[in-house]
Design a protein around this nucleic acid. Structure first.
Length: 276
DNA sequence: CCCCTCACCTGATCGC
DNA sequence: TGCGATCAGGTGAGGG
C-alpha cells in the first residue's frame, strides 16, 4: 500500500537511476493506465524527452522533463516500478508500461507493473500539473505543516479523526497504515471527531504525524504486502507497526489487545487501553 | 459544503 | 479438491 514513505523511497530510487537520461522508446501495454490520455499521446509526450529530476508530491511520483512537462505516476494499491539493464521491450503479466532510457551511465529499462490496475501514469503540461498540485493538501513533512495549520484543517470537521487524516485535500500523503499509526502515537482514539481535539491533543497529533512519517521514510517504507522499491528491496517499517494489522495482539505500551473496527468502510486499528 | 458509501480491480485466504 | 465469499485500500463519483 504505497503511501508517502513508500512513494518517497521510490522517487529517490528513480532519481538516482534515471535523472539526466533520455527516453528512447515507450510501450504502453495496458491502455487504461494512461487514461484519459491515449497511448499515442502518452508516447509522443515522453519519447525523446530528458528526465531532469524525480521527486514526490503526496503519494504521486513526479518526474520533471526538459520541455517543462511533468511525467506523473499514481501508484494506488499495487503500482510498482522496476529498473533493469537495457533489453528488448516485452510483454509480461501485469506489465502496464515499459520505457527504454539512455544516458551516460548506460541507461536501462524502466517498467511499471500494476496487478490491480488502479494506478495511473500521465504526462501533464504546466497548467495540468498546477491543477493537480492545487487539489492536494499540505505536505506533512514540510516546514509549512505547523500545529496551527493542522488545527485549521481539523477545525469544523465532524468526521472521525482517522478519516480526516486520510483526506488528501487536507494532509496529503497519509494512507490507512500511517493514519492509524499516527493516532496510536498521539494516543488518540481514531473515532474522535476531528473538531473536538483540544490544543494539546493537536500538538500530540502534529508531532505524531511527523515522527511516524520520518521514521518510515528512514526505514524505506512498509512492505506489508506488495510494496517494493525499484530494485525489488523491501522496506522495514512493518517491524515497527504498533497497531496496523495487529488486531488481537498485545499493545506494546499497555499490554491490552489491539482492536479492529471499521470507519468509512476501512479498517481502523487502535489500542482501547491507551488511545482516548 | 460535508461526510459517507460504493465501484473499481486482482490475488490471497477461509469455510464448507 | 474445488469453489464461492470475503477482504485488502487509494481515490473519485454520487447521494443524503
Amino acid at each position: 500500500m504505497p503511501e508517502l514513505p513508500e512513494a518517497e523511497t521510490i522517487a529517490r530510487g528513480l532519481h538516482a537511476a534515471i535523472a539526466g537520461q533520455r527516453v528512447q522508446r515507450v510501450r504502453v501495454h495496458r491502455e487504461e493506465v494512461v487514461e484519459p490520455m491515449t497511448p499515442a499521446a502518452f508516447r509522443r509526450a515522453l519519447t525523446g524527452r530528458r528526465v531532469q529530476s524525480v521527486s514526490r508530491r503526496a503519494k504521486w511520483i513526479v518526474a520533471s522533463l526538459d520541455d517543462g512537462a511533468r511525467w506523473v505516476t499514481q501508484l494506488r494499491m499495487t503500482g510498482r516500478f522496476t529498473w533493469n539493464p537495457p533489453s528488448a521491450l516485452r510483454t509480461e503479466p501485469h506489465l502496464s508500461i515499459s520505457l527504454l532510457l539512455d544516458g551516460t551511465q548506460g541507461g536501462g529499462v524502466l517498467r511499471f507493473y500494476d496487478i490491480r490496475r488502479f494506478g495511473r501514469v500521465w504526462v501533464l503540461d504546466p497548467a495540468g500539473w498546477s491543477a493537480l498540485d492545487a487539489r492536494l493538501g499540505i505536505e506533512p513533512l514540510s516546514r509549512e505543516f505547523s500545529r496551527r495549520s493542522l488545527a485549521g484543517l481539523l477545525d469544523g470537521s465532524r468526521a472521525p479523526l482517522r478519516n480526516v487524516l486520510l483526506d488528501q485535500k487536507r494532509v496529503a500523503g497519509l494512507g490507512n497504515v500511517y493514519a492509524n499509526e499516527a493516532c496510536y502515537l498521539a494516543q488518540l482514539d481514531p473515532r474522535r471527531l476531528a473538531q473536538d481535539l483540544d490544543e494539546s491533543e493537536i500538538e500530540r497529533l502534529h508531532r505524531a504525524i511527523k515522527t511516524v512519517l520520518r521514521s518510515a521514510v528512514e526505514r524505506r517504507g512498509t512492505s506489508f504486502s506488495d510494496y517494493r522499491d525499484i530494485l525489488g528491496g523491501e522496506g522495514e517499517f512493518q517491524n515497527d507497526l504498533e497497531v496496523y494489522g495487529r488486531s488481537g495482539e498485545p499493545c506494546r505500551r499497555c499490554g491490552g489487545a489491539i482492536a479492529r473496527i471499521v470507519l468509512a468502510g476501512r479498517s481502523a486499528f487502535f489500542c482501547p487501553g491507551c488511545q482516548h
